[in-house]
């Protein structure tokens, strides 16, 4: 028996039959998968924040905060602007200045970022400060400390890694959290992060700076300026915990050449100098 086959009719039938499938099936599956992942992620993030708080409190305990004034307000405002554009939406970021001559900046998980007064004094303009804050923001965004401490398990969730223990209120769990934050402190002040993470933070800082129309070359110039200061012993922690400045500068120059930004971007030197002098 011969059947009449009409391609157009068959096509219409196929489309009508299959149209709801991806919409109801795939999209619903994706939505449910996302909702489930959000539940796990919320626990992870809450834990990351608690961990970051402990680490930040330890940093403040060992290195005095600069008393509130125009400089701390300036750094907090610049940082808040940066985080409003490029921060992780689930985090509230906090920025502070440490009353320390040594040149460095630190990022704790959960959004606590510090820059030393010595680092600010080694800078010439706002673009350089923004570059340093953006570098630290990138560490938080990419969860470099969390990854370095191997808090993530194979399923990429820190919850199964240690949240199960920490989530409880037992004193032993608190001790573990304390020990981990002590380990993170050593990581920031003595051992340093993975060099690959530092280069990644530099590259992201460059992108953030350029996106906000600041002169990204200023950040590279700042790193270059640190070399003699390092020899004078003013950047002990940076030299101990970061890749060699020369290799960071080389990589940043390569990144900048690839992006090839237009000239005449802002540095806001006058505003920076006024704020630093007014401290």
């Amino acid at each position: 028996m011969k059947t009449n086959f009409h391609p157009l009719r068959a096509f219409t039938l196929w489309v009508c039959l299959l149209l709801p499938l991806p919409l109801l099936g795939a999209q619903d599956f994706k939505r449910r998968a996302y909702q489930e992942s959000q539940k796990v992620s919320s626990k992870d993030i809450a834990l990351e924040i608690e961990f970051g708080k402990k680490l930040a409190a330890k940093i403040i305990g060992s290195n005095k905060l600069l008393a509130p004034g125009p400089l701390t307000q300036y750094v907090a405002t610049l940082g808040a602007g940066l985080a409003a554009y490029f921060g992780r939406p689930e985090l509230q970021y906090y920025f502070a200045v440490l009353d320390q001559k040594d040149i460095n900046a630190y990022a704790c998980p959960g959004g606590y970022i510090f820059v030393t007064q010595g680092a600010i004094q080694a800078m010439q303009n706002e673009a350089q400060l923004l570059g340093v804050l953006a570098h630290e923001l990138a560490h938080v965004n990419q969860k470099h400390v969390v990854k370095a401490l191997k808090l993530k398990s194979a399923d990429q969730s820190i919850t199964s890694g240690f949240a199960a223990i920490i989530g409880g209120s037992s004193s032993s769990a608190k001790v573990i959290l304390d020990q981990l934050s002590d380990k993170a402190y050593r990581l920031l002040f003595e051992e340093g992060l993975n060099h690959r993470d530092e280069y990644e933070a530099d590259a992201l800082a460059l992108q953030m700076t350029l996106s906000l129309d600041y002169d990204a070359a200023s950040y590279i110039r700042y790193l270059k300026r640190l070399e003699p200061k390092m020899k004078q012993g003013y950047a002990k922690v940076v030299s101990q915990t970061h890749p060699a400045l020369s290799s960071r500068v080389t990589k940043l120059r390569q990144n900048l050449a690839e992006l090839n930004p237009e000239r005449g971007r802002k540095t806001n030197s006058a505003r920076f100098q006024a704020q630093v002098r007014a401290r």
Binding site: A57, L78, A80, G81, Y112, L212
Partner: peptide
């Protein structure tokens, strides 16, 4: 000290205007 740091936070809107 941590509490003081948190109290010194600036709003996102203020930060954006500043930039």
């Amino acid at each position: 000290g941590l509490e003081k740091m948190e109290q010194g936070q600036i709003s996102s809107a203020q930060g954006k205007r500043f930039l």
